[in-house]
Amino acid sequence: MTINIYVIRNRLPQEIASLESEARREGYRHITRLIQEWSAGETRFEYEGERLLGAYVGEALAGVGGMTLEPAAVEALRMRRFYVHPAMRGRGVGRSLALTLLDHARSFCSLVTVYAGNGGAAKFWESVGFQPCGRDGHTYVLEL
C-alpha cells in the first residue's frame, strides 16, 4: 500500500466531507471544526511553521493532520486536527502524517505539543515519541 502525503493549501479537498462524516459517526467533532475554521478564515495553517497535510491511498483521502503555532509556548508548534479513516488505521497513515509534520517542525521549533483526546490517541502519540505532560491544554510533548 502506497501512502502519498500532500500539503493542503488554498482549499480543503472535496474528500474531506467523507472524513468528516466518519469522524462524526465516531463522535469526533474536530474535523467539523477544521472545516468551519477553514471556511471562516480563522485557521488556514498559513503562519510560519504551520502546515496541513492530507494522506492519500490511491485516490482516497485516508487521513489529515495539521500543525499550528502553540499558543501556550513560545517557539513551539502543536499537532492538530488529526484523523485517519477507521478502515485505514493500523496501516501507517497516521504515522506517515505525524512523521512528515515532525520533520517539517524541526526547521521551526524544538518543542511540539498535542492533546490526545482518548486512550487510542495517547498510545499513538507515545509510539511516535511524545511524552506525557498534562499542562497548558496539551497532554503530550515531544522535544525535537
Rank of each mutant, 00 (worst) to 15 (best):
E143M: 14
Y56V: 09
I3S: 05
E143L: 13
M79T: 01
L61M: 09
D103R: 09
A23F: 01
G66P: 00
E20F: 00
R89V: 05
R44H: 04
Q14I: 06
H104I: 11
A72T: 11
V57K: 12
P13T: 08
V128W: 03
P86F: 00
A73P: 05
W125D: 07
R9K: 15
S110F: 09
M88T: 08
R78M: 07
L61G: 04
T100K: 07
I8D: 11
M79L: 15
F108S: 02
G134T: 03
Q131H: 11
A116K: 00
G63K: 03
G58Y: 00
L61Y: 02
G137N: 01
G137K: 00
V141Y: 09
C133D: 15
S18H: 10
P13N: 08
P86E: 02
G66F: 02
A121L: 02
C109T: 15
S107R: 13
C109W: 12
A17C: 01
R29N: 13
Y140H: 06
I5S: 03
M1H: 08
R33I: 03
M1L: 07
A72Y: 13
Y115I: 02
G92M: 09
R9E: 14
I31L: 08
G58C: 05
I16H: 08
L99K: 10
N10A: 11
A62T: 04
E42H: 14
A23E: 01
R135N: 11
P71M: 07
L144I: 12
A55T: 07
L111A: 10
H85G: 13
F130A: 10
K123F: 12
E75H: 13
S39N: 11
V74E: 10
H104R: 01
H85R: 11
S96F: 04
Y83W: 14
F130Y: 08
T2D: 10
Y83C: 03
T43Y: 06
V114I: 12
Y28C: 04
V7N: 14
L99Q: 09
R89I: 05
G54E: 03
T139M: 02
N10D: 15
S21A: 12
R80E: 14
F130V: 07
A121V: 02
L19F: 05
K123G: 15
L34E: 08
G65C: 06
M88F: 11
F45R: 00
P13S: 09
E15F: 03
V141F: 15
R24I: 10
G58M: 01
L77H: 06
E15D: 03
L144W: 08
R11M: 13
L144A: 12
R51Q: 15
Y140P: 01
S96L: 06
I16S: 10
L12P: 01
E15T: 04
L34R: 10
R78G: 05
